[in-house]
Design a protein around this nucleic acid. Structure first.
Lengths: 337, 337
DNA sequence: TGAGAACTTGCAATCGTTTGCGAGAGCGTT
DNA sequence: AACGCTCTCGCAAACGATTGCAAGTTCTCA
């Protein structure tokens, strides 16, 4: 099937000149006469010649490919980040190869192998949740292939990363709830060993303390997806433990919470305020629409690509840690200031 | 920065043997003595030798890369498809390079160039909405690089494709609405020149006719996103034109509709039933949760990859048109049978 | 002792492209 | 006529890996 893409040699043979002349003619090298250039360009055009990127890579030892490893492509946040990466990469003449780890460390290792074998110029990675061994990344860095981590980073490795200030974002969101009159808050949290989760939790806790509200561990519940948020809300209702404000670790959990509250005919935000985190599509769709933290995935991806490409092209060695600013998006699940 | 990945030559030099011997030793060629093999393998292991995929590609004229063009990565449906492609591709030893067209034909053309230059072994494509000129795809097919289209296909090109039976799915959904008692239906439709939209529209129309309900063009409204669904619903309300059932071209539109109905205190499904299309995440989050058509994106991607890889490896030339079965997902925005 | 077989290994070409260097042609100058 | 210069262009090596073929060594057996 795959017949034959036109090569420089083909053109050379047809015009009865050498391949080097064709190569130089195509890139306007001054050594080549104008007539020859014209002949070559005309034929190249006619035959739809396209340079073989693979041969160029081999020659230059640069693939112009960025390798990406994410837990799941379908996750809205990750696809947003990928989109940001793709945008800048395309601009700068890079392609992106995407692999997903499905939260499995074995697959993550495989992905590293593949990308290394493919001689990517650099990698952008968000690691799996439950890994504490980062030797594979350390090895790659040692070979000189740069890696930029985003969102989930690797404790103990000195490397470039792009993150948001989860602590501050959570602090701000919580403080907003307090300022709009909530006095009895709960936090629906993610797994403790995931840094982004624990930071959000501490932001919540510190906001309470600084605003003269007491904090204790019983304000923290574990719930980080739709159904857990939904079920937990029902449970709190049954036990008569519903607060007047809930800050959730992500939008899905908030959506589950809202769904339960709707069914229970509890008015949001009049009786209970709900604050999410991520600002995914769903935050506009819930009823009422969800106040949340804008976690600019697109910008994260874009920035990560920026750092990486700079590293590839300028061979700098300084470690960059970029923090993407967050923003509170106030919609209708919270009261107005 | 990028120092040097270990090559066969490096190993050869260290052991003072030729590169060919190393190559053969690594792949257990019978010509090589066991001692040599052991020496070579041991050193290769120690130095973390990884074959240079680029060199192999150049040599074999196979890149083992599948190029993907989608309008937008962040769109849930597309990222689901990509996920399906990635899964099988990884299994079969292929990498995927992803590009997005952002619904711009110019970018789509650029993407084709890039992928062609990258010498991908094949492509999986969902084209931009408003293009009617498919010469670029025709040209690629002529060079012998196979393309499998999915979801949005190209009228007039004989090529492999993976689609769903939009007509039947729409027919079934509409019939469900009728069977649960709706007598006065409307359809919120997408652009007419997009085949998937018009097929859904005809499925809707024919279901009405076959069930002895009259159909006329005034039952078709143009609305294919959240805000259009929302606004249109309000407008119908004002003009006292609300039906007892609405079938929308996608989930987002349905979500907008539900949102408006909620605000208008119109009971769903008691007063109005709403049926969506896609079964994205949002269909579980709306209140009430949305009855919709399962459009198995993952399976579409997986199947597309299957067809493509088969074409690449077995060089078959027969054209395959695969139809992914759909399924009605009944939730709470419609009445029960 | 010599011939042939068996076993190991190396040479060189190849994939498509780039690039330093050298070579030939054509011209003008002395 | 001889030299030198400018214009054009081709040769060959290189990137990393594979592979047909040739070549070298060792061994066996007559």
């Amino acid at each position: 099937m795959k017949s034959h893409q036109v090569t420089i040699k083909d053109i050379a043979k047809i015009l009865d000149i050498s391949a080097s002349t064709v190569s130089r003619a195509l890139k306007d090298h001054p050594d080549i006469s104008i007539e020859t250039k014209n002949k070559v360009k005309k034929l190249a055009d006619k035959l739809k010649y396209k340079p073989n990127a693979i041969a160029l890579s081999l020659q230059s030892n640069k693939s112009h490919i960025i390798g990406i490893i994410v837990p799941q492509i379908v996750h809205h946040f990750f696809s947003t980040v990928i989109s940001g990466i793709e945008e800048l990469a395309a601009d700068k003449g890079y392609n992106i190869i995407i692999t997903q780890s499905n939260e499995s460390q074995k697959k993550e290792l495989d992905n590293c192998q593949t990308l290394l074998s493919g001689r990517v110029d650099g990698m952008i990675v968000s690691r799996t949740k439950d890994t504490e061994n980062f030797d594979h990344f350390r090895n790659i860095l040692n070979t000189g292939t740069p890696i930029v981590f985003f969102d989930r980073t690797c404790h103990g490795i000195k490397t470039d990363k792009v993150i948001i200030d989860d602590y501050k974002a959570a602090y701000d969101a919580t403080e907003y709830l307090i300022k709009t009159g909530c006095k009895n808050l709960l936090h629906f949290a993610g797994p403790k060993n995931l840094k982004i989760s624990s930071k959000r939790m501490w932001g919540f806790a510190d906001a309470l303390k600084r605003n003269n509200l007491s904090f204790n561990e019983e304000m923290i519940y574990s719930a980080d997806n739709f159904s857990k948020g939904y079920n937990l809300t029902y449970e709190l209702y049954k036990n008569n433990h519903l607060p007047d404000g809930i800050f959730t670790v992500n939008d899905m959990t908030a959506a589950g919470t809202l769904s339960a509250l709707n069914e229970l005919k509890i008015k949001v935000p009049e009786e209970i305020s709900v604050f999410g985190f991520t600002n995914g599509i769903i935050s506009q769709i819930t009823s009422p629409s969800l106040s949340t933290v804008e976690q600019n995935g697109y910008l994260m991806g874009y920035s990560a690509a920026e750092i990486l490409i700079n590293k590839i092209e300028n061979e700098t060695t300084d470690i960059i840690s970029k923090i993407i600013p967050t923003k509170l998006i106030i919609r209708n699940s919270t009261k107005k200031l």
